[in-house]
């Protein structure tokens, strides 16, 4: 596992697994590198909305574009919890805090729409109040080949009195069985719904190869990088060429 900074980013500390704590917002580059260095590993990034979409927004965009076969779980509580209650990128307009005293007046960041716009490989939204369904979505994301994003609606009981457990429940619904997540235009329509937010697998794109599949180092040799050694004979030849 790889995580950033924040409450959600502490998740790996409570799990018996190998993990790497990246810089604030910068967990995705490390996760991509871990997967690229050893494609046999299952790599999961876990962090919050502030870390992933704000601090690491550029990495989020480029992680989707790279399409490494990793899963990102974002605990989206629409507030900065670690710093005790300021606006986050996903805070709703009008949300008041001790800093945003007149209410947030920025357009909320829409991770689902951004991911669909970037033709992400797997895009889903879950609600932490529903453990069974959330578990199924996480399993689908991990087993999916390609970059998978799960935005998890999860209330902050300490610093968000607007987006409460009840608010998330009242403002979301599950996509039904007739919904086809392979249709990008339909997915985009779902992504921009804002009265009630759709839950479930919103978009799947199986068409693009993964980041690791495109790496030349694995073309003829599947061994992870740490098992390989330097070819000094080739290096010597390269140096000899510099005499001519």
């Amino acid at each position: 596992m790889v995580s950033g900074i924040g409450q959600a980013a502490k998740t790996p500390h409570y799990i018996n697994t190998s993990f790497f704590d990246g810089l604030h917002g910068r967990s995705l580059p490390a996760a991509i590198a871990i997967k690229a260095s050893n494609p046999e590993l299952t790599v999961i990034v876990e962090s919050g909305d502030g870390c992933t979409y704000g601090e690491g927004g550029n990495h989020f965009i480029n992680a989707i574009r790279r399409n490494a076969d990793i899963t990102t779980i974002v605990h989206d509580n629409m507030v900065y919890g670690l710093t005790k209650g300021q606006a986050s990128p996903t805070s709703r307009r009008g949300f008041t805090t001790p800093v945003q005293v007149a209410g947030v007046n920025l357009e909320p960041f829409n991770p689902i729409a951004v991911a669909v716009a970037l033709n992400a490989s797997f895009v889903a939204r879950a609600f932490a109040g529903d453990i069974e369904k959330t578990k199924e979505i996480i399993k689908s994301a991990i087993t999916h080949k390609g970059y998978a994003l799960i935005d998890v609606f999860q209330q902050c009981v300490s610093f968000n009195r607007l987006n409460t457990f009840k608010w998330y429940r009242d403002h979301s619904y599950y996509l039904d069985a007739s919904y086809d997540p392979h249709d990008r235009e339909e997915a985009f329509k779902k992504a921009v719904e804002s009265e009630k937010f759709p839950l479930g697998i919103i978009y799947i794109n199986n068409k693009n190869p993964t980041f690791e599949e495109n790496l030349a180092v694995y073309k003829d040799n599947r061994e992870p990088l740490f098992k390989r050694s330097v070819d000094y004979r080739k290096l010597e030849q390269l140096m000899e060429d510099k005499r001519a």
């Binding site: 790497f20 990246g22 810089l23 580059p29 490390a30 590198a33 871990i34 990495h59 965009i61 480029n62």
Partner: peptide, 11 residues
Amino acid sequence: EDEICSAGISW
């Protein structure tokens, strides 16, 4: 995509 990524990705 930026210098911080290049430092982070070479973990």
